[in-house]
Design a protein around this nucleic acid. Structure first.
Length: 579
RNA sequence: GCGCCUGUAGCUCAGGGGAUAGAGCAACGGACUUCUAAUCCGUGGGUCGUAGGUUCGAUUCCUACCAGGCGCGCCA
């Protein structure tokens, strides 16, 4: 039952039964001549009706095929229903309603299978093989190492990290990558800024260049360097000096970034250096390849990519008049490198301020001979930082933003991660620091975590009272209690069934979220599941003097805990045992 | 001017070609001798930005317009 494949769940089994039954009914009706031949082509769509009264599942098949069958929807529905064979399936009742919906009600025991499945699979319940082992690279954050991470980077970091976890759960082989922009013009400016700060630290009045980096962090860093090394760099050749200072600063800034991200639960498999592309001649090779493809021309002394051939609205410079490659050139070399590494799909998580860059990047990939659909770009809208409902803008004259480290410090890792992922990526996010930091009331993170703490608490008490044997932390209850001896059909109340149904849909949720690249769905699911659990908790006492009922409910509680941990695990939010 | 995102309850947002549009917060009224009240139950609250179009059916898709955000470099 639902166990044909490792990744086929009760929910999939039910959907398949419905689809098969409908398809066979249509085929039979066509054969009898009561429906026209064209009906065989009809697509079968299943949906979960909003209204409980409309059953567990419904299909609009009769309505969508009314035109093709040249017949009134309700008439078609009747014909289909007459030919429906539900023998041996979970389908219990079928009715025609409204303009021609066919509504299905399932046998109540289908939900009990879900408990068995969750107990059998543990936290693997919900895993999918829709990725089928295909290799996906997710590139995210990739903030310039010339300054600290700020709040804006936080959202991209969480979206990328949760999306990666989600894709892994869906059966993709995921590589998480950070592209370090440690070359090019900005690094020249970075070096000049460092040099100026260094001189300043030694008491010389040298201004930071207009185009340079004015942040306090560099001032502090160079003050440290001056304190450690004194005037060591002063006597060096200026070019050597800037190079040395740049290398030292990049190393330290990158270490800071890695630490901040690690504190945020964000890790990477690869840190990819742009400078490596320059050093290895990859940029030259990429431009050469584009030339061979006929996508490069010369004009005004520069080399241009004919990106308009691939849908961009203007052509783009790749090699400047002065011979220096543009950022785009490096990025094209980088993406060529990605595809050469064998990724089937490459996903870039970008801030909304970079969305204008998409057409030229896609064009470049196409010009290099790769299918541009293999490059997906997930745009994450910008974050409005608030405190008590009031905007928190620039903090100082230099335009210094609130750093990610400060936010984590103020609201904690779990709350920060949840707030960054709770809205869809294309919605502009209001992040209210005071709300996220609130350890009481209206904080959704604690609402979810509290549900998990309650679950742990119940299981703890059941053990202390001797209702169940000692259980290893976070192991399924079925490890110590024989589930076959438990009467799960006692889980029959409305709240219990609502909770079971929520659990049944977890694999479906993982699939939909992964396919649509919508990690925020997992946050919503976790919140909904916690809500279903809280309602159950308040309506049903778990530990009672009725051992049979107690055991059945303990399994429901345990199964909820397992799924809640899976969802929180994907979100990278902790699941506490007490609060 | 052109492009991308957004416009849904007082606020923040889900949802989505279907049957009576949802959640959280805020407001109001209830529930702790019982496994954690960081919880639950109930009430009120909506021309789904505006106008057209496609469709058996549009809040959802298309077009135009209005409003907000972001972007339109031989910057990254």
């Amino acid at each position: 039952m639902g166990k044909r494949s490792r990744f086929m769940y009760v929910i999939d089994h039910v959907k398949e039964e419905l689809t098969t039954a409908l398809a066979q009914a249509v085929a039979k009706a066509v054969q009898e001549g009561s429906l026209p031949e064209e009906m065989r082509e009809a697509q079968i769509q299943l949906e979960v009706p909003r209204e409980e009264a409309h059953g567990d599942w419904a299909t609009n098949l009769a309505m969508t095929s009314a035109r093709i069958a040249r017949c009134a929807p309700r008439k078609i529905a009747e014909t289909i229903v007459q030919n429906l064979d539900t023998e041996g399936t979970f389908i219990d009742q079928v009715e025609i309603a409204g303009p021609g919906f066919i509504n299905f009600r399932l046998r109540p025991d289908w939900l009990l299978e879900v408990v068995k499945e969750i107990e059998a699979k543990g936290e693997a319940y919900g895993r999918r093989d829709i990725g089928a082992g295909r290799k996906v690279q997710v590139e995210f954050v990739s903030a310039n190492p010339t300054g600290p991470l700020h709040v804006g980077h936080g959202r991209g970091a969480v979206v990328g990290s949760v999306l990666s976890n989600l894709l892994e759960a869906a059966g993709f082989l995921v590589t998480r990558e950070y592209y370090i922009n440690d070359a090019g013009n900005q690094i020249v400016n970075f070096g000049l800024s460092l040099e100026a700060r260094y001189f300043q630290a030694l008491g010389q009045d040298v201004p930071v260049p207009e185009q340079g980096y004015h942040g306090e962090d560099l001032k502090e860093l160079m003050a440290e360097v001056a304190a450690e090394k004194g005037d060591f760099y002063l006597k060096m050749d200026p070019e050597e000096r800037r190079k040395a200072l740049t290398e030292l600063a990049l190393e330290r800034k990158l270490a800071d970034i890695k630490r901040d991200l690690a504190d945020f639960g964000v890790t990477f498999d690869h840190w990819f250096s742009e400078s490596k592309l320059h050093a290895e001649g990859a940029i030259k090779a990429t431009v050469q390849k584009l030339k061979e493809e006929g996508s490069i021309y010369e004009s005004e002394g520069a080399l241009w990519l004919k990106s308009t051939d691939y849908g961009d609205d203007k052509d783009r410079v790749v090699i400047r008049e002065n011979g220096v490659p543009t950022y785009l050139a490096a990025d094209l070399a980088y993406h060529k490198n990605k595809f050469e590494r064998g990724f089937d799909t490459v996903i870039n998580v970008w801030g909304a301020d970079h969305h204008g860059y998409i057409p030229r990047m896609k064009a470049g990939v196409a010009a290099l001979g790769y299918d541009p659909d293999r490059l997906e770009i997930l745009i994450v809208q910008l974050v409005n930082l608030l405190r008590d409902g009031e905007p928190v803008v620039m903090s100082k004259r230099t335009g210094k933003l609130v750093t990610l480290a400060e936010v984590i410090e103020e609201v904690g890792k779990d709350a920060a991660r949840y707030f960054f992922i709770m809205r869809s990526a294309d919605s502009h996010l209001d992040f209210d620091l005071s709300l996220a930091a609130a350890h009481t009331e209206e904080n959704p993170v604690f609402y979810i975590q509290y549900a998990h703490a309650r679950i742990s608490s119940i299981l703890r008490q059941a053990q202390e009272l001797g209702q169940i044997p000692r259980l290893l932390e976070r192991k399924p209850l079925s490890d110590v209690v024989d589930l076959a001896q438990v009467n799960l059909s006692l889980l029959a109340s409305e709240v219990e069934r609502a909770l079971l149904k929520k659990l049944a849909f977890w694999p479906e949720e993982v699939a939909v979220a992964a396919l649509n690249r919508e990690p925020h769905r997992i946050a919503r699911y976790a919140h909904d599941l916690a809500g279903s659990f809280h309602s159950f908790y308040n309506a049903c006492r778990v530990i009672t003097d009725d051992p049979e009922l107690t055991l059945a409910r303990l399994f429901l509680v345990d199964a909820t805990g397992i799924v809640l941990r899976s969802a929180l695990g994907i979100l990278g939010v902790s699941a506490p045992d007490r609060m």
